Amino acid sequence: MTGEFAAFIGLALVAVTGGILMLNVTKVVHMVVSLIFTFVSIAGLYVLLSAEFVAAVQILIYSGAVTIIMLFGIMLTNHQDENEKSPGRLKKLLVFLGIIAFAFVVYKGIYQLDFGQKTPAALHEKNTEQIGIALFTKHVIPFELTSVLLLVALVGAIVLAKKEEEDEA
């Protein structure tokens, strides 16, 4: 067993455990913490795949920004955890069986996958440069449309916030 395989197994177990915990814990803050574990371990898997830029983006965007936004949303809303019921044994058993079935299907799909004989690509060399070139040449229109969409969402949020302030006054 190589060190890379051991790291993959460890990171995969942390990712899957974080996902399962996120679905099974009852407190919302604990769900966010387990989601952070999942995001960080997925970033580690990207590092194993020689995609350091994608791993850094995973850490910055998902583990940082999205998690902070979720925590702010949780703190700014009122949650009554007393009324929540814990899932029954039958539901837990069905979820476990569903996870096992999904893992089996993914396992069979991966080992029956055939890419054919292609020449190996040098994906690990200058991958950030390759992403930049692809983003600003082949995919420049979707990139610009995404930035316009984010700008429209920001302006819309400001307009809605101003309208609520005016209604209260």
Rank of each mutant, 00 (worst) to 15 (best):
G3L: 09
A6F: 09
A7Y: 05
A7V: 06
F8A: 08
G10E: 12
L11R: 05
L11F: 12
A12V: 09
V14H: 04
A15M: 10
A15V: 08
V16E: 01
G18L: 08
G18W: 03
G19T: 12
G19E: 07
I20W: 11
I20S: 03
L21I: 09
L21A: 09
M22H: 05
V25Y: 05
K27Y: 10
H30C: 05
V32R: 06
V33P: 00
L35W: 07
L35N: 07
T38V: 07
V40S: 01
S41P: 06
Y46F: 14
L48K: 02
L48S: 00
A51R: 05
F53N: 01
F53M: 07
V54T: 10
V54W: 00
A55N: 04
V57P: 05
V57D: 01
I61V: 15
Y62E: 01
Y62C: 01
G64V: 12
V66W: 00
T67G: 00
I68C: 01
I68E: 00
I69F: 10
I69K: 04
M70F: 13
M70Q: 06
M70V: 15
G73I: 11
I74T: 10
M75C: 02
L76I: 13
E84K: 15
E84S: 09
P87K: 07
K92R: 15
F96L: 15
G98A: 13
I99K: 05
I99W: 14
F102D: 02
F102E: 03
F102H: 02
F104M: 13
F104R: 08
V105L: 13
K108L: 15
K108Q: 14
G109W: 11
I110H: 03
Y111R: 15
Y111T: 15
Y111V: 15
L113M: 15
L113R: 11
G116K: 03
Q117L: 13
Q117V: 15
A121K: 12
A122R: 13
A122W: 09
A122C: 09
L123H: 12
L123I: 13
H124V: 08
E125V: 14
K126G: 03
K126W: 06
E129L: 13
Q130E: 09
G132W: 13
L135I: 08
F136W: 15
F136T: 14
P142L: 15
P142Y: 14
F143D: 04
E144A: 13
E144K: 03
L145A: 11
L145P: 06
S147E: 06
V148P: 03
L149N: 05
V155H: 01
V155C: 03
G156S: 12
G156W: 10
I158W: 03
I158S: 00
L160A: 10
A161N: 04
K162T: 07
E166H: 08
